[in-house]
Simulated assay, not measured.
Amino acid sequence: MARTYPWKVSDAFWEGVKPLLPATPSHAKGGRPRMDDRRAFEAIIYILRTGIQWNALPRELGASSTVHDRFQEWEQAGFFMALWQAGLCMYDELEGIQWEWQAVDGAMTKAPFGKAATGANPTDRGKRGVKRSLLTDGAGIPLAIVIDGANRHDVKLLCATLDGIVIARPEPAEEQPQHLCLDAGYVGAPARQEVETRHYVPHIRSRGEEKQEKVLTPGHRARRWVVERTHSWINRSRRLLVRWEKKGENYLAFLHLACAQLIFAKVEVFG
């Protein structure tokens, strides 16, 4: 099998990135030439996919301090969110977002240096951790993501996740309903009420119930697992396996970039 290089930025991906980049600051007063945008973007992708420390960035990819400054500049300009949105729009045109069946689930990870949006992880002896709550479409395409402390219950993040879809959600209709699949962690009236208020048809199942339905109902297709698979896809970006960013906004920027890269990879396939 040919070796893959997931940190490589294809020409097709770059063509989607280039129009969204913030305007280059003026150098009218002189100074050192600015690092090329594509080179800086490729170095950020390298950090994301390999998980190395900023100061361990190979010198041939760029000075770590320069690349980090560019990352901060682009994060403050909202570039990574805009890239994710642009990828979703392109994917929707080429393949179509599967709004009919959506799914939400949370995942926890360590955050030893994290400050904001962290808390004691109940599954890791109370060590500092972060929870990300993810909404996907029926094919596992990420539509929304929010973060909070690992001790925050999934139900408490449900509203922010459902309201955080980064592109316009079509209005559900009787002939085109939108179903939302949730696991047993969302059982209860509060979660069901929030789901129905947003005009979703709720499906709250435990893994055991899903397996039983599959056995008892010929042709039944479990639909909640796609969000768990997307969490796994995101974890292929090794920078996200453990949250090293102190700032919540920097961690979110990497999450947005991972979602964007995931979607643009699919756009290239369908394109």
Rank of each mutant, 00 (worst) to 15 (best):
A173Y: 08
H153E: 01
R49Y: 13
Y251L: 04
D154H: 12
A111C: 05
A173P: 03
D183I: 10
R34E: 06
S65C: 06
G129V: 06
G87Y: 05
L262I: 02
H231C: 10
Y186D: 02
R207T: 02
R207I: 00
E228Y: 01
F254D: 07
A144K: 00
A120L: 09
V195W: 01
P112Y: 06
I147D: 03
M108G: 15
I165T: 12
R229Q: 12
C259Y: 13
K214Q: 13
K18P: 00
F41Y: 13
T118I: 15
S206A: 04
V146T: 13
N121D: 15
V227C: 08
C159F: 07
E95G: 01
A111F: 09
K214E: 06
G30R: 15
R59C: 11
I52G: 05
A117G: 00
S206N: 02
Q261F: 11
E249Q: 10
R239N: 04
L162E: 01
L241Y: 03
A107P: 05
E249H: 07
T66L: 11
L83I: 09
K131F: 01
R70L: 01
L135S: 02
E209C: 00
H68W: 15
M1D: 13
Y5F: 10
R205G: 00
I52L: 12
S206V: 01
L61I: 11
P58M: 11
R169K: 10
G51R: 12
C181P: 01
T118D: 14
I204M: 05
L180T: 01
V226Y: 10
W225G: 03
Q193N: 13
G106H: 07
G140A: 11
W99N: 00
L252C: 14
L134C: 02
R239C: 05
A189T: 15
A107Y: 06
E75W: 02
T50H: 11
V269H: 06
R192L: 13
N235H: 06
Q72R: 12
M81K: 12
Y91C: 01
E175I: 14
T197L: 08
E245D: 13
L21M: 09
W233H: 10
G164R: 08
P22Y: 04
R224I: 07
G119D: 10
R198W: 11
Q102K: 10
L257N: 03
S232P: 03
L162V: 08
E213T: 08
A258K: 00
L240D: 08
G114M: 04
P33K: 11
F264C: 04
A116E: 15
N121Y: 08
E75N: 08
L48M: 03
H68R: 15
G140Y: 05
I97N: 00
H153D: 00
T24G: 03
H179P: 02
I147Q: 09
R221T: 14
K246R: 15
G164F: 13
Q53I: 05
G164Q: 11
R169I: 00
A40M: 03
A103R: 07
S26C: 07
G188L: 09
G87C: 05
H256A: 15
Q85S: 09
V226A: 08
W99C: 02
A23N: 04
D11C: 13
R34P: 02
L241K: 11
C181G: 07
E245H: 04
N55F: 14
P33A: 02
F13S: 05
D137M: 03
L21T: 09
